[in-house]
Each structure stands twice: as C-alpha cells, then as structure tokens.
Design a protein around this nucleic acid. Sequence first.
DNA 1: TATAATAATGACTAATCGGTCAATTGTCAA
DNA 2: TTGACAATTGACCGATTAGTCATTATTATA
Lengths: 278, 278
Amino acid sequence: MAKRQLIMEKAIELFAKQGIESTSVQQITELCGISKGAFYLSFKSKDELIVSIIDDFIKKITSDIDRVVNSPKNVQEKLYDFYLSSFKLLQDHREFAKMFIKEQLHTVNQALLNRINYYEQLTNQAMLRLLDELYGEKIKENKYDLLISMRGLTESYSKLFFTINVPLNLPLLARALVEKTNLLANHTSIVFLNENLVQQIKHPSTDYITITKIIQEIDRLKKIVTNQLESESLDILKNQLQNDVPTHAIILGLLQNIKNNEDCKWLVFMVEQYLNNK
Amino acid sequence: MAKRQLIMEKAIELFAKQGIESTSVQQITELCGISKGAFYLSFKSKDELIVSIIDDFIKKITSDIDRVVNSPKNVQEKLYDFYLSSFKLLQDHREFAKMFIKEQLHTVNQALLNRINYYEQLTNQAMLRLLDELYGEKIKENKYDLLISMRGLTESYSKLFFTINVPLNLPLLARALVEKTNLLANHTSIVFLNENLVQQIKHPSTDYITITKIIQEIDRLKKIVTNQLESESLDILKNQLQNDVPTHAIILGLLQNIKNNEDCKWLVFMVEQYLNNK
DNA sequence: TATAATAATGACTAATCGGTCAATTGTCAA
DNA sequence: TTGACAATTGACCGATTAGTCATTATTATA
C-alpha cells in the first residue's frame, strides 16, 4: 500500500511539471525506482492513477469546505475560515494544485469529469449556505453573482502561489477577501445572474451519494485506520447504516469519533449529505 | 495562404474539443480534406501551428485592450469598454478561448510561454494605466489588488460562456463588473499585494519589441494588405523606422492610416510601445 | 500540344506510448 | 538447505505519433 502512495506522490510531481499526457508511465516508474510491471500491480491503468489522485484530493477539498461551513463559529469567522482553509489547502498541496490548474482534464475519463462537476456543485451549495447565513435576504437577488465573484477572486489570488516565490501572509489574504466579499455583498445593485442562467449551478444530482458507496468507503477506511476507537466506530457505523431503522443520534455520535482523522473526512461528509437528503 | 488559415481554423476546432496533445496532425488534415504532406507545406511542425494560433490571438487581445485604454473617451466609459471588448472577444472566438482555457500550455514550447507571459505583462500595464486614470492617487496602495481582482472577476464570469448555453447580455455583464470594480476601488482598506510581492507583475522585459521585429511584421503585412493607402503607409513607415532620425509626427500619422485595419492592430501596438520605451 | 514548374499525396519510418507476461528474484516455513 | 509461493522485472506487443519523401496530379508557359 505504501507503494501506491509513493507512485501517486511522484506522479503528481511529474504531472505538475510536464502535464498529465506528457508524462509516461515509464517516467513515473523510473522516478519511483521501480519497474513498469510493479506499477501495474498497484494500478490497473494510468487512467486509474489519474482518477485516484484527483478523486482523493477533491474529497479533501469538499469535506474541508463543508466542515468550515458547518462549524459552530460565528458567520463572519466562518467566511474568514473558508478563505483561509482554501488557501492553506492550496499551499499544502502546491504540486497537486499546479497539476490541477495546468490540465483542464477534458482529455481524461468522462466519469471523472462528471464527478468533478458534482463535487463542484456540492461546494457551490456549501458556499451558498454560508452566504445565506451571512447576508440572508439582503443578497437574495445577487447571491449567484457573489458566488461567482468569490470563486474568481479566490482563483485569481491562487495563481499568485505559483508565480510569486515568497511565502504569503495567508491570514492577511483571507481578511482582504473577507472585506471584498462584504463589500460586494452589501453594495452591489446590478444583478447579472438571474435564476434562469443559474439552473446548472443550482441543481446538482443529489442522488449521487448512495448507501453502497458509503459502505465501500467504510471498508476502505477499515484497512488503513489504526486507532482503536475509530476502527470500532466504523464497524458500528456500518451496522447502523445497514440497519432498517438507523438511529440518527448514534450515527452522528459515531461521526464525532472519527471526524478528526484526516482520512475519514470524506466519509463524514458523505454520511452527513446522505442523512440530509433522506 | 488560404490553406494556412483553413488549417488553423480547423485545428482550433479540434483543439477545443479534444485538447492539443490529443489531436493528431492526421485528424486535422482529415477535417481539412487535405493530405498530411500538404499540412507540412504550410507549417514546419505541429508546434509551429500551435505557436501561430496562440500568437495570433494574443496579439489580437493585447492590441484590443491597448486600443480601449488609449481611446479618447472618458474613463468610466473606457472601463466599461474594457470589460465589454474582453467579453466580446471571448464570445467571437469561443472555440479558441475554450482551447486556451483547456490547456494551460505548459507542455509546449518554452519560448511560447515566455511570450505569453510577456503579453500578459503588457495587458497588466495597460490595465494599470487605466486604473491610474480612473482613480488616481486614491488607489495607489491597492492598485495591484484591484488588478488581480479584475482579472479574477473577468475569468470567473468568462467560464460561464462555456457552461451556460444561452446568449449572454454582455452590456449588462460589463456594467455589473464596472460597478464591482468601482466598489472595490473606492472602499477597499486592506492591502494584500505590496510592492515587494509585485515585482514580477510590474517589470516586464521591455526590450522585447525590437526594430527588427517591427520590420518583420511590416513585411508580413505588406503581403496581405490590399488597401492602397495602407500599403503605401506601410512602405513609408518602414523607411521612417529605419531612418537614423525618425520623425515621430510622421510615424504617428502613418499609424492613424492603418489603425482601423484588423490585421495592422498588432503593428500599431508594437510601434507605440517601441516609441514609448525609447 | 508539349514541357517545365509547382502543388499535393499517402505509404513509410523511427520513436514512443500504455499495457502484458514469461522469467527471475526474494521470502520464509519446514 | 530446500522448495513453494509471492513479488518484481523488463523485453516485448500492437497501436499511434510527428514528420519525410518518392511519386503523382495540376497548373502555367511557350
């Protein structure tokens, strides 16, 4: 399993430098110091490697944003946290982000594209909830404009990460964007994005998360989680979810037990989404 | 020469759909209805095709923005024009824009990347001049933040062009972004980008435009310009520029003669830049 | 119409790609 | 030390790529 991790890391390195298509499996295996055959013991294909890398990371982003939005802090602080954690994630995974920005990924797997789109819609929903909480009725008309603007600002500043080679003052950046967001939210009068234009952004296919997928994720985690409490919680969680009458209180409690483990964040997010949409 | 144009158009079509790397020369020639050999009569290599396509378009963007910024209109109108012409350009060249967004082009030619970077810096300069004119001393501190924000907003809304399939109300969009720009310019207090962070954005390598390149461009245009006045102006312009003591007044007058020809815009821009930097 | 000049063709090459699998090496219980 | 089993290797495969060039078709000229 460590081999798999090694391959993914080295692959991200090369993908970031050269692009995905221009990086051959040969190059990856050479950088890892393994043979080509060994690569195909860990991954069925080059495509599976790409999907794994991106899937892993998107899960991290999505659950991170969701955690921020659902935190018990006051809303202004949440907005700050949203920006800060977005940029932190970027800084901590520079290489991946570089690769992700470099490729627009229209070349690869259609299924992967759908998934990316789905995750994007989920983060949009989370951001909209945050905006609702922050400004309420006041931005009813222009919340989609605000969403697009926030995305634009975030992306634009994100690019600086790759062109400027000094460590950035992330808290300051987050505060600057909070100010801009508040400005745009409170004083914008011209609405561009009407409901009509927004259908695509608004309605994600909410039936994407199924109980089967959750169980799969639990089984995957069972193999890598070492902590006793967490492992036990996973077992009970699996039983509860497969139960005909699952008890929400128990499930939510179990989620609390595992939510601090980085690997479990995606599972926590999925279960929460699943419960919300029932 | 028409063949060259055909190839470029069809290539853009395929590049936009499949990405540059995944599009083979074979596919391009098939779509054009010509043979593979014929392709290599028009282009030395696939790389030259890519460079030509991108170079052509970047010249168009750069000279367009410059034209807006240097127009005699009042400044608020210029800002509106800036946004409007940016989006118009995008709408008129959807396929190219799609391709440009899709690939981040780090795969190809390093020389091309340098050139893209150079053009980007030129547009930055033009935008900064516009901002200076608009807000003067007031945004001295945060003009770079404003620049980055404007770029972010533009890009973010640009993406809608490819996800939403209804024709967009561009004048409204331009007005909306003018409002946002004014808001950010007039009420932002937190400055993130200080002079220190901004070196890369600020100092383009200004020696890029040389008299040799200008002469080359004139020679190129001589072959395609049909209008009598324009053709004559090009001849005189060439003589003037090679003259030991070129007369600015004459040169500027000659530029007036050709500035309305789409093909000549880049030449006009280069000469202006050249004169400014002397 | 005959001849020269030019334009266009597509079979071909060498290189590289993702992916396979017989052969080899490493591990560990008996 | 042996032998059974698992892990690992890299030569090899078919497919595809960018680019070439001897040959053929077309056009211009005399």
